[in-house]
């Protein structure tokens, strides 16, 4: 009796794991399929580029404020903390290098992607989910207009274009924030701040690699947001859950991808 109960609960657990696993794999496959279709129908959407421009406005331009403000604070905090530690070793001039390298290599792309997922990604998921719930996508299909070419692809490319721009702005504004704390407030030498930075930040290895990262994050974040919206059950609850999932999955994906990309880049 007890044995059969134990067996029952064991099989139930295993079944649970199995069904979750198949679900995940299925979603991964469906996401990959949507990604592929998006690429296939991108040509159609490029013919009418103003659609993409419109989405750049909604994803990129509307995220400017949050990106610039957070970058400024991140840069200032970096300078404060960095100075605190570097000063103990008598190398407070290296603060420029510290701020610039942390921003350009890591914080710029990663924090931008996280903020992007929260600001633009959720908006995309909610919008697409709502379009699905209110049968707008269906209506488009019935009008012989392909929703992937008309709705998904422009948003995808807008995200992919916006992300590196936002990340670059993040790095630049962050460095300015660090400069303001380090030079006028703390009193690090102005020349040393910039020259040490220039001597140690490599254009190809640091700046371009940071850009590559942010482009990859742009593809990942936008695609996750689009897929979650496209795949959301057509109910209010379904859309809200999809929105939450967008943030969670995007954030985890960005952090994991960051590790993978960094390890590749450091090997090269």
């Amino acid at each position: 009796m007890i044995k059969s109960k134990l067996l029952n609960s064991l099989t139930r657990t295993l079944r649970g794991i199995g069904s979750r696993m198949t679900e995940r794999v299925w979603r991964l496959g469906a996401g990959a399929r949507l990604f592929f279709l998006t690429l296939v129908y991108s040509g159609e959407s490029f013919k009418r580029f103003h659609l993409t421009l419109r989405e750049i406005y909604f994803t990129g331009v509307m995220s400017l404020l949050i990106i610039v403000v957070s970058a400024f604070f991140v840069g200032m905090v970096l300078a404060l903390q960095g100075y605190n530690t570097l000063q103990k070793y008598g190398s407070s001039e290296a603060i420029g290098v510290l701020v610039a390298l942390s921003l350009v290599r890591e914080l710029g792309p990663v924090v931008t992607a996280l903020l992007f997922a929260g600001r633009a990604g959720t908006a995309i998921t909610a919008e697409i989910g709502l379009m699905k719930t209110t049968e707008q996508l269906s209506a488009m299909e019935m009008m012989a207009v392909n929703p992937i070419a008309r709705v998904i692809a422009p948003r995808f490319w807008a995200g992919v274009i916006s992300m590196p721009i936002l990340a670059t702005l993040f790095s630049m504004v962050g460095i300015l924030g660090g400069y303001i704390v380090a030079v006028p407030l703390i009193g690090v030498d102005d020349g040393a701040f910039w020259s040490q930075m220039q001597a140690n930040v490599d254009f190809r290895l640091d700046i371009v690699n940071g850009l590559i990262k942010s482009i990859v994050f742009g593809v990942a974040c936008t695609m996750i947001a689009l897929f979650e919206g496209f795949d959301a059950p057509p109910t209010a609850e379904g859309v809200s859950r999809a929105t939450t999932r967008t943030v969670v999955i995007s954030s985890l994906t960005v952090l994991a991808l960051d590790f993978v990309l960094t390890s590749f880049m450091l090997v090269i």
């Binding site: 707008q136 019935m142 009008m143």
Partner: peptide, 13 residues
């Protein structure tokens, strides 16, 4: 074909 959906399905944007 033209189709009128139950709730209109107008493009909200």
């Amino acid at each position: 074909m033209g189709m009128l959906f139950q709730h209109g399905a107008l493009f909200t944007d």
